[in-house]
Design a protein around this nucleic acid. Sequence first.
DNA 1: TTTACTGCAAATATTTTGCAATATC
DNA 2: GATATTGCAAAATATTTGCAGTAAA
Lengths: 156, 156
Amino acid sequence: MAEQDIIETVKEELSSYLAERKLRKTPERFAILEQIYSLDEHFDVETLYGLMINTGYRVSRATVYNTIDLLVECRLIIRHQFGTNMAHYEKAYNSECHHHLICTVCNSVTEVKDEELNHIIQAKRYNKFNLTNYNLYMYGQCQKCANSGRKKIIHP
Amino acid sequence: MAEQDIIETVKEELSSYLAERKLRKTPERFAILEQIYSLDEHFDVETLYGLMINTGYRVSRATVYNTIDLLVECRLIIRHQFGTNMAHYEKAYNSECHHHLICTVCNSVTEVKDEELNHIIQAKRYNKFNLTNYNLYMYGQCQKCANSGRKKIIHP
DNA sequence: TTTACTGCAAATATTTTGCAATATC
DNA sequence: GATATTGCAAAATATTTGCAGTAAA
């Protein structure tokens, strides 16, 4: 699916979500969604806000925060807390389930896909818990840092 | 292993860690470690600080933060970011690997053990990544909240 | 005696909130 | 026209930092 098609689709998803709940279709909400879906990587609120401002779109930080909460609720983005103070987000639509490798030496975050593991986890029903989604964060050293022999451990 | 024995053991571990790095064996560090290992649950910095103060031990918040960082570094405690702003911690010594169920309605965190899943994840070696530990956070609704029909989704 | 560590308070970082103005329905 | 949403600034929350005094080695 081409990026432009995805953007159109998620805008429609947001549109129906807002309509269903009688929320308003403000230009800010669609502009922020579009900005997010033009990115290829994880982002944090400040980065997103900066991008909006730099591309000439005037929004307030408060609106960026509000909209991000909304997009998390309607499952168009996923929220992560990788161990730093600030939250990270990523696109959720049309993105395959993946896990995260976090290098505790260089702090890099790499995504890995593992359908088999995904199925195993999805099938679990611990304590009659109604699982909606999950995050698997794997900490350690990436190949590069393992070879370099450095050992600084930041988190966890 | 009895709680008192565990406390003795972790104190010795801390002691050697400090000695190795020529860091100082201050009473605060051991008192904080002892307080942590007397708890049965996850805790956050503010709760820990409150407990120290309430049991008559005078420490500053700064020292609590410093000591927690130290204990994370020497792997006597584990840090979590469950999606709220503040970090949570738990004892690491002698504690079996477990996963976390986080209810997005009532925010409760429940631990579950699953040795089978644990073995599967431990065996993975994605991208030649040198895995030291991992966190699996599962979000959804606990049995109680699923039955209550409430739907507020806070995170993610 | 040296300097790592502590406590305090101020600073920083991130997110939330109150409120008046604005824009959607 | 009613009110959800915005922008702004101030507040709240969580954590870090600078620095003078204290105490471990």
